[in-house]
Design a protein around this nucleic acid. Structure first.
Length: 276
DNA sequence: AGTGTATCCTGCAGGC
DNA sequence: TGCCTGCAGGATACAC
């Protein structure tokens, strides 16, 4: 998916448009993206007013007042687009839901692979789910000491650890690879074997790469778009992700791709030694 | 506790 | 041109 920087970019885009607008219903073309029937989803959305747009991990949160919160997880190919009254009404392909808005404009959800999810939860139910997610990597609560302590408790490979949303929320395959490269840590390393300086570097690497990617409006590989439909520019700044066989930006060694956990990891074998 | 596998679904690049 | 395979930003459920 869209990882934290992409979701954050979409949320910022929607935040300037949606609060104050209301839904005027919803058209559902692909009900398999919902966890309930189209009819009940439509009934619950009804004419609700959007009071706030937020983010938790990779989830987009639209606060609706009475029905609770609309939680959108984009999966790998989901797009959430705002179409203003004066905008070019070109519809995206793979349109799954459209939400006409009052007084004007509309919100569109498109998703070619349809592994995204849209759910309406009560604030209480959402609070329970949110508690199950790990801390926000950019949040103040996550200190280097807490981060190191959490790593100490796990034997999992550090890359698996970073991708586990229950441990830290918002990191996906791209930024896990980039953060590990910046910290000089091999993705196979067991979490608990990271030294305090290494875990400090890793947390710094995570924060730097996420902030830089947010500044660039995220990474567009193929499907990701901002809420206004533009592409993110961070792809050109990627140092190892998707760069198999290309030179490491630091030492020029060929970037390697290894597969584990059913997905590709990218690393520089020199800058990220397996052991010292 | 952790890990490998399968599942949801479609699209596209590359090999032949 | 067309067919086939592998691969893709995610999340979850299961067996071992």
């Amino acid at each position: 998916m869209p990882e934290l920087p992409e979701v954050e970019t979409i949320v910022r885009g929607l935040s300037s448009q949606l609060p104050g607008r209301s839904f005027r219903g919803v058209d559902v073309f692909h009900p398999d993206l919902l966890d309930e029937s189209s009819a009940s989803f439509q009934a619950r959305i009804a004419e609700s007013k959007i009071t706030h747009v937020g983010r938790r991990g990779k989830n987009i949160l639209l606060s609706l007042g009475d029905p609770g919160v609309l939680v959108v997880n984009l999966g790998m190919t989901g797009r959430l687009l705002f179409l203003g009254p004066g905008d070019d009404p070109v519809l995206p392909t793979h349109l799954a839901l459209t939400f006409p808005l009052a007084p004007d404009g509309s919100l569109l959800y498109a998703d070619s692979r349809r592994v995204g999810r849209l759910r309406i939860l009560t604030p209480e139910a959402w609070a329970v789910e949110s508690e199950r997610l790990g801390p926000e990597p950019l949040g103040r609560a996550l200190t280097p000491a807490r981060f190191h302590g959490a790593l100490q408790a796990s034997r999992a490979p550090i890359r698996s650890w970073l991708l586990d949303q229950r441990r830290i929320a918002g990191i996906g395959n791209i930024y896990a690879a980039e953060a590990l490269f910046r910290a000089g840590v091999h993705p196979f390393r067991r979490a608990r074997t990271l030294t305090a300086p290494e875990s400090k570097r890793l947390l710094q690497g995570i924060r730097e790469v996420l902030r830089e990617a947010i500044r660039a409006q995220g990474t567009t590989l193929r499907d990701y778009r901002t809420a206004s439909g533009t592409e993110g520019e961070f792809r050109q700044a990627l140092r190892v992700y998707g760069r198999e066989g290309k030179p490491c930006p630091t030492c020029k060694t060929s970037v390697e791709r290894i597969v584990f956990g059913n997905r590709s990891a990218f690393l520089c074998p020199v800058c990220q030694p397996k052991s010292f």
